[in-house]
Computed example of a mutant assay.
Amino acid sequence: MDRWEYKTIKFGLKGFGGGILETEDFNYELNKLGDQGWELVSCFTPNGANGYSRDAIAVFKRRK
């Protein structure tokens, strides 16, 4: 049976009220984790006040 480990990373969003993702930095982090065997499972933004988001959350998994 496969066993998995999980990692959750929080990326800060830029801009007034948030919502702007620095894609170059984001891609760098995704590729770095991918090289370590992590697979991106989900990415989402938790809603803040008035629907604005200050963070993006990325969830990864890899076999143990």
Results as ranks from 00 to 15, higher is better:
Met1Cys: 01
Asp2Tyr: 10
Arg3His: 13
Arg3Lys: 14
Arg3Gln: 14
Arg3Phe: 08
Trp4Phe: 15
Trp4Glu: 11
Glu5Asn: 11
Glu5Met: 01
Tyr6Arg: 05
Tyr6Glu: 05
Lys7Ala: 03
Lys7Asn: 00
Lys7Asp: 05
Lys7Cys: 10
Thr8Asn: 02
Thr8Asp: 05
Thr8Arg: 03
Thr8Cys: 00
Thr8Pro: 02
Lys10Gly: 02
Phe11Asn: 06
Phe11Gln: 04
Gly12Tyr: 04
Gly12Ile: 00
Leu13Cys: 01
Lys14Thr: 11
Lys14Gln: 09
Phe16Asn: 04
Phe16Ile: 04
Gly17Ser: 02
Gly17Met: 04
Gly18Glu: 02
Gly18Arg: 00
Gly19Phe: 04
Gly19Val: 02
Gly19Tyr: 00
Gly19Thr: 00
Ile20Gln: 08
Ile20Asn: 11
Ile20Phe: 14
Leu21Thr: 12
Glu22Pro: 08
Thr23Gly: 04
Thr23Lys: 06
Asp25Ala: 15
Asp25Tyr: 07
Asp25Pro: 01
Asp25Phe: 04
Phe26Ser: 08
Asn27Lys: 04
Asn27Met: 13
Tyr28Thr: 13
Glu29Lys: 13
Asn31Val: 03
Asn31Thr: 12
Lys32Gly: 01
Leu33Lys: 05
Gly34Phe: 15
Gly34Ile: 08
Gly34Ser: 13
Asp35Ala: 14
Asp35Glu: 15
Asp35Leu: 01
Gln36Cys: 00
Gln36Pro: 07
Gln36Arg: 01
Gly37Arg: 06
Trp38Asp: 07
Trp38Ser: 00
Trp38Ala: 00
Glu39His: 10
Val41Asn: 01
Val41Met: 11
Val41Arg: 02
Val41Phe: 09
Ser42Lys: 11
Ser42His: 11
Cys43His: 08
Phe44Lys: 11
Phe44Asp: 12
Phe44Tyr: 15
Phe44Asn: 07
Thr45Trp: 03
Thr45Gln: 14
Thr45Gly: 07
Thr45Glu: 13
Pro46Gly: 02
Pro46Cys: 04
Asn47Pro: 15
Gly48Ser: 10
Ala49Arg: 13
Ala49Ser: 14
Asn50Phe: 15
Asn50Cys: 13
Asn50Gln: 11
Gly51Glu: 12
Gly51Arg: 09
Asp55Ala: 12
Ala56Met: 12
Ile57Gln: 08
Ala58Gly: 09
Ala58Gln: 06
Val59Trp: 07
Phe60Ala: 11
Phe60Gln: 05
Lys61Glu: 10
Lys61Val: 08
Lys61Ala: 08
Arg62Glu: 12
Arg63Val: 15
Lys64Leu: 14
Lys64Ile: 15
